[in-house]
Design a binder for these strands. Structure first.
Lengths: 171, 171
DNA sequence: CGTAACACTAATCACTTTGCCCTATTCTGC
DNA sequence: GCAGAATAGGGCAAAGTGATTAGTGTTACG
């Protein structure tokens, strides 16, 4: 419904640096009027530029320091029903349908190895799940980040002010 | 340095529901005084309960609608140098060191298939990288979420009010 | 060339929120 | 029961918000 221009990108950048910035502070930092910032922020939210706040919560704080990726192989015709079942497992924080040999890539967090074992068992117990392959994340070698990409996009966009992609079609 | 109690969890929950809540609003919703909410929020931030704001930015808004997981097999002794190189690639938004056959699981976002191909090439070009296996994410069947886990933890914690895990040791 | 649409600035206003202070009152673990 | 922490409640000045208005480019279109 709307595309991002250079100023939008700078706004996002500033938010990464200082998430609790007020509109006033953002306006000062970018040399804009508060009005403009306020309007643009509204537009950004409107156009789904922001994902759920859930992503900002640290699972470690919830007592779930272990992260694992579980590759699930399943009978494809039962996919939707299986996803519905997985939806009931709170330790599953995300799941992607995948191309290639693995049908589903599931991201789980857990308290310890036993917990992981239990969760894996729960997944396996779902009707239609053939097998799973669990890989434990040993460390987040590159912590989640978007600023480098933000910078590249900004640079590419250069002095121009129109993005070329519509973003209202949710991932 | 500090552990989460029941009220902290409820606060996090409320933030997921309404990320732009003011302290006043949170206090009302939870039936606490604003002072308390403010103090607890400060403590939560202090104790790394929140991850970087980067996570809330939608890559689709940045013109990168495609997500892929790339499994990287490499010479382990060169791991740190390789990670340093991968760090230079903006399209890599996250990377985990893994147990099992895959050494590294890299999360990339890209504009289109060609872009993905190019990025994969860049990764392969790194000294010490043996081979990669790319899987395209076809859809986020379970969108990233933490609230179900939040609820479970809250329930388990029950009327008690102390968490049992320290969270100051960053993931 | 005119004009309509749009984004931006600047300035106002009433209102809310913040940050910080204080004190009295529960809790809590020891 | 006591020490220390957490909380409620209050207060206050400063800051931020939301909403509106008016004036100024800029751009796109016929």
């Amino acid at each position: 419904m709307h595309s991002l221009d250079r100023v939008d990108l700078q706004l996002l950048r500033a938010l990464c640096v200082e998430p609790r910035s007020t509109f006033v502070a953002l306006a000062q930092r970018l040399g804009l009027s508060r009005n403009t910032v306020q309007a643009r922020m509204a537009r950004l939210e409107e156009s789904n530029a922001f994902l759920a706040f859930d992503r900002r919560i640290n699972p470690i704080a919830l007592g779930h320091p272990l992260t694992a990726f579980i590759q699930v192989h399943l009978q494809q015709k039962r996919l939707s029903q299986i996803v519905a079942e997985l939806n009931q497992i709170p330790e599953i924080v995300q799941a992607h349908g995948m191309s290639g040999s693995t049908d589903l890539l599931v991201l789980v967090v857990c308290t310890d190895a036993d917990d992981l074992f239990r969760i894996d068992g729960t997944i396996l117990a779902c009707e239609g799940v053939d097998r799973t392959e669990t890989s434990l994340a040993m460390g987040e070698l590159i912590p989640y980040r978007i600023t480098p990409l933000l910078d590249r996009v900004t640079r590419e966009r250069g002095p121009a002010n129109r993005a070329d992609v519509d973003i209202d079609d949710e991932a």
